[in-house]
Amino acid sequence: SAVVMEEGSPGEVPVLVEPPGLEDVEAALGMDRRTDAYSRSSSVSSQEEKSLHAEELVGRGIPIERVVSSEGGRPSVDLSFQPSQPLSKSSSSPELQTLQDILGDPGDKADVGRLSPEVKARSQSGTLDGESAAWSASGEDSRGQPEGPLPSSSPRSPSGLRPRGYTISDSAPSRRGKRVERDALKSRATASNAEKVPGINPSFVFLQLYHSPFFGDESNKPILLPNESQSFERSVQLLDQIPSYDTHKIAVLYVGEGQSNSELAILSNEHGSYRYTEFLTGLGRLIELKDCQPDKVYLGGLDVCGEDGQFTYCWHDDIMQAVFHIATLMPTKDVDKHRCDKKRHLGNDFVSIVYNDSGEDFKLGTIKGQFNFVHVIVTPLDYECNLVSLQCRKDMEGLVDTSVAKIVSDRNLPFVARQMALHANMASQVHHSRSNPTDIYPSKWIARLRHIKRLRQRICEEAAYSNPSLPLVHPPSHSKAPAQTPAEPTPGYEVGQRKRLISSVEDFTEFV
């Protein structure tokens, strides 16, 4: 048969007729292969192709491409040299491709048809291009793949890379869960390890502090508590009631339409708007009261037996805890006409967050109470924005700035309102402590230090009264110190430094 060459192609190359033996071998191979691939376009007849790359030819070592076609129900084999250009295909004639002069020997084609199974398996396991790669995943090629499931790999992101949580363990979102698992493993320790309690022994800490320079003076030496005195035992138990972190309780009120001037209507609300609910979820963490331990979680007086509701929101960081007394989460009882059960919590909070959804101005004093010092007013606006402002009593104007209003988005509203309420509550605590000038409020841990110092002074006084020969370590507060001759004046800087060093040991009130 003659071949018409394309323009620009090399000279004529004689194409030899395939021997009958080659056709029989390739026909047997075509019957084993699956003929249901995917359909081509209507211009080209339905056909199945599979590209198999052999590394070497037997005796020649030339890479070839073998295409199996099922045109007219008769499979045909096409061998081509890759750099050459194939002729145009037609549905009426068999596929013809040019070969190099080196394939002119018909014996070479017979060798190609009689490829060993080793070469076929190696060509099938190679990388296939384009559409033949999808075909190689079918059941027909499963014989050339190794048996057994593939090893499982770690989760992959859409980009093909490992997620960040699997790369950096410290930033993994499941870090707290692993800590819980470690605690569970520790709890399952053997009885021999049960006595080993991690941490620092208080006796060891005391020993280090006792021999430090801070205890060089007799006034700073630790003293032993009497065991037989019940009054001192009660004082030590009272110390446990003062937490070592700051605590805040903040009221949250929802004002519906037409309720801006009605205290009873505001306290009777059992739910609010959708934006109000989203605002609550951002204030803190939802907790169930019956599962809380009052000595570990500050509840601000809420009952854990269901008297004040089942849930509330709280927030904490390293040095403070805040609980929100939310009116809509507290039960509304029919027998309580004046809502006294709610007001006994909300009316005693220094700061209230008022979500004013009424469309009218909310005035300070609508919720009557002796300790309502500051109101954080949240007014929802259009386009997911809110107006946040402050209202306070006249005696609080020096501590709280009420002249600045803020426009905040719904997303950042819980954070801004919480921070403003916490700052206002700190100012309210300082303002409330002014009624007792001898006990200015600095912080909870300073209050613990003052309680310890008062307890020490009482013990020293009782020891001096029981044994008059012992001198008083600290003179009583009601006694007057003996007159001392004025010492020589020293520079102001040295006096300030000495006073600062003494105050650092005794108390921190002056620095606050």
Rank of each mutant, 00 (worst) to 15 (best):
I353Q: 00
S273N: 03
I367A: 03
T438A: 10
H375C: 14
D361C: 05
D318T: 08
T281S: 15
F311W: 08
P226H: 12
A327E: 04
G258I: 02
E307C: 09
D336Q: 10
E488R: 12
C385F: 10
S504P: 15
V351Y: 00
T247I: 09
F311G: 06
G369M: 11
E307M: 11
K342I: 05
R275F: 00
V404A: 11
I250M: 03
I223L: 11
V505N: 14
Y355C: 00
H432A: 07
L472Q: 15
A322G: 04
V400M: 12
E397D: 04
H375N: 15
D395F: 14
Q310N: 08
H451N: 13
V473R: 13
Y274K: 08
Y313Q: 04
I353Y: 00
A447Y: 08
K363R: 10
P468G: 09
T366W: 05
S229E: 12
I459Y: 15
E494C: 10
S469N: 15
R344A: 10
A322H: 03
N467W: 12
E307R: 15
L449M: 12
S428G: 04
A447T: 14
F373H: 11
L470I: 10
E278A: 08
I223M: 08
T332V: 09
C305S: 14
P482W: 07
R434M: 11
L289V: 10
S435F: 09
T312K: 05
I377W: 01
H248M: 14
E233N: 12
L302I: 12
I250S: 01
L455A: 09
E228P: 07
D317W: 00
Y313M: 15
S244W: 15
S262D: 15
H316K: 15
K394P: 15
E307Y: 11
V388F: 00
R344L: 08
D317E: 13
D291K: 15
T312N: 05
T332H: 09
V404Y: 07
N356Q: 01
P226F: 10
D410Y: 00
S435D: 14
P380E: 00
F508Y: 13
S244Q: 10
L264E: 13
P486R: 10
L225E: 15
P471C: 09
A483P: 09
E462Y: 06
C292A: 12
D240E: 08
V323F: 15
D291Y: 14
V430I: 14
K221V: 15
N269H: 02
D240G: 05
I223Q: 07
I266L: 03
H271P: 03
N467G: 07
G256N: 03
N386P: 00
L449Y: 11
K406S: 15
T509C: 11
I459N: 08
L253V: 08
C340I: 14
R411E: 12
V388P: 00
R498C: 11
E510F: 06
Q391E: 07
G306F: 07
F373G: 05
V236I: 15
V354E: 00
A322D: 03
A447L: 11
N261A: 11
T281Y: 07
D341A: 14
R448W: 07
H325Q: 05
K342M: 06
D295E: 11
P489V: 13
Y254A: 00
T247V: 08
V335Y: 13
V400N: 03
S504T: 10
Q237E: 12
L501C: 10
P442D: 09
P486K: 08
R285Y: 15
Y276K: 00
P331I: 03
T509K: 10
H271S: 08
T328C: 02
Q391S: 07
D349L: 11
N356V: 01
D240Q: 05
D357F: 00
A327L: 04
A447F: 05
G306K: 09
D246K: 04
D318N: 07
P414H: 01
F279Q: 00
D303T: 05
L329T: 04
S358L: 01
M426I: 10
P222A: 13
V255Y: 02
L364M: 15
A427E: 01
K221C: 15
A322T: 14
H375K: 03
S219W: 08
R498K: 14
